[in-house]
C-alpha cells in the first residue's frame, strides 16, 4: 500500500463497524469483482441520504460501489460532486457492503472539472444507515476544526540536524486547486525550509494520466504541471521561503499510467535541501 493510502485504511476500518442493512436492494450483475481487484473508472457519483450522514457511491458496470461518507475537510475522504463525473481509482475490499455498495478500499476519488448535468442522483436511505461517524450533519461536535487550527499554530518546531526532505502534493485530475489537505503540505514545506534555512527548495510538477479498467487512458491537460508548479512556487515565496532558494520545473509529457495508484502521477514534489 502506498503511503498516501494509509489515511484511507484508517477510514475503512472505522466504516467496517457501520451497519449495512438492506443488501437485497443491491444492483446485481452476476459478475462480482474479486477482493484485491483494482477498479478504475469514470462515472457519475451517487449520494445516498442515509442517517447519520450521507454516503457516497458510484455505479460501474451495473454494480454499486461504496466510496466514503460525508465528514469534513479534516477527513481523508473528500466526497465527489453531482453535476460532475468522478474518477474513481480503488481496490475491491472483502468488507461487508456499506450503503449497498461494495467497499472500495483504499480508494481515490476526484471530481472531473467539466460539467455533466446527468450526474444528479440522490438515493433515499432505503434502510441503510451510517453509525458512529465522527460527525453528523450538524455543527462540529468537538470543535475539531478549531482544535486543528490551534495545533497548526502551535506546531512543533523543527530542530537540527536538518536533512533533505521531499514532500508531495497530489491534485485532482485536470485540477490546479489545492484543498486544505494540500495546503497543509505546502505549509509544512515552508515550516521546514525556513527552520532549516534551506539552500534549495526544488518544486517539480508532473502531468498525470490514468489507465481505466476498460482500457481507456486519460491524460491531463498539458498546461497543468506549469500552473501547479507556479502556484506552489508563489505560495512558498508568499509564506516566507526565501525566493532566491526556490526553483521550479515541470514535465511536459504525461507520466505513464498502469492502473495502479495512477493518482500518484498527478503530483508536485517539493524537495527541501538544507
Amino acid at each position: 500500500m502506498s503511503k498516501a493510502f494509509a489515511g484511507f485504511a484508517l477510514l475503512g476500518s472505522l466504516l467496517a463497524s457501520f451497519a449495512a442493512a438492506g443488501d437485497s436492494n443491491d444492483i446485481k450483475t452476476g459478475k462480482l469483482p474479486k477482493p484485491g481487484e483494482r477498479l478504475n473508472f469514470v462515472s457519475c457519483p451517487i449520494v445516498r441520504d442515509t442517517q447519520m450522514v450521507p454516503c457516497w457511491l458510484a455505479e460501474y458496470e451495473g454494480e454499486l460501489y461504496f466510496l466514503g461518507i460525508q465528514l469534513d475537510l479534516q477527513s481523508p475522504f473528500f466526497p465527489p460532486q453531482l453535476k460532475h463525473d468522478a474518477l474513481v481509482e480503488g481496490v475491491v475490499s472483502d468488507k461487508p457492503r456499506i450503503c449497498g455498495g461494495i467497499v472500495l478500499e483504499p480508494v481515490k476519488v476526484a471530481s472531473l472539472p467539466e460539467l455533466n448535468p446527468a450526474c444528479n442522483t440522490i438515493l433515499p436511505a432505503e434502510g441503510y444507515k451510517i453509525e458512529n461517524a465522527r460527525r453528523g450533519t450538524g455543527p462540529d461536535p468537538i470543535n475539531l476544526s478549531a482544535t486543528n487550527q490551534r495545533k497548526a499554530r502551535e506546531a512543533e518546531q523543527y530542530s537540527p540536524p536538518y536533512v533533505p526532505r521531499t514532500y508531495t502534493v497530489y491534485f485532482d485530475f485536470d485540477s490546479d486547486y489545492m484543498p486544505s489537505r494540500s495546503t497543509r503540505v505546502v505549509t509544512e514545506v515552508m515550516r521546514y525550509a525556513t527552520a532549516a534555512n534551506a539552500k534549495k527548495v526544488v518544486v517539480t510538477a508532473h502531468r498525470g494520466s490514468a489507465l481505466l479498467s476498460n482500457g481507456r487512458k486519460l491524460i491531463e491537460q498539458a498546461k497543468l504541471p506549469e500552473i501547479r508548479a507556479k502556484k506552489i512556487h508563489e505560495a512558498l515565496a508568499d509564506l516566507g521561503v526565501a525566493p532566491q532558494t526556490i526553483s521550479s520545473s515541470w514535465s511536459g509529457s504525461a507520466e505513464p499510467a498502469d492502473g495502479v495508484d495512477d493518482f500518484e502521477t498527478r503530483r508536485v514534489e517539493i524537495a527541501v535541501i538544507p
Binding site: 449520494v47 460525508q70 465527489p80 460532486q81 450533519t137 486547486y177
Partner: peptide, 27 residues
C-alpha cells in the same frame, strides 16, 4: 444551527472538498 438540508451547486462550498451536495445547516 442544527437543521440540515442539502446545500448544493454552491461554488466556494461544494467544490472545495466537502462534496456536492453537502447535507449541513445554515451555520
Amino acid at each position: 444551527f442544527v437543521r440540515p438540508f442539502w446545500i448544493r451547486d454552491t461554488t466556494g462550498l461544494n467544490n472545495i472538498g466537502l462534496g456536492n451536495p453537502l447535507k449541513r445547516q445554515c451555520a
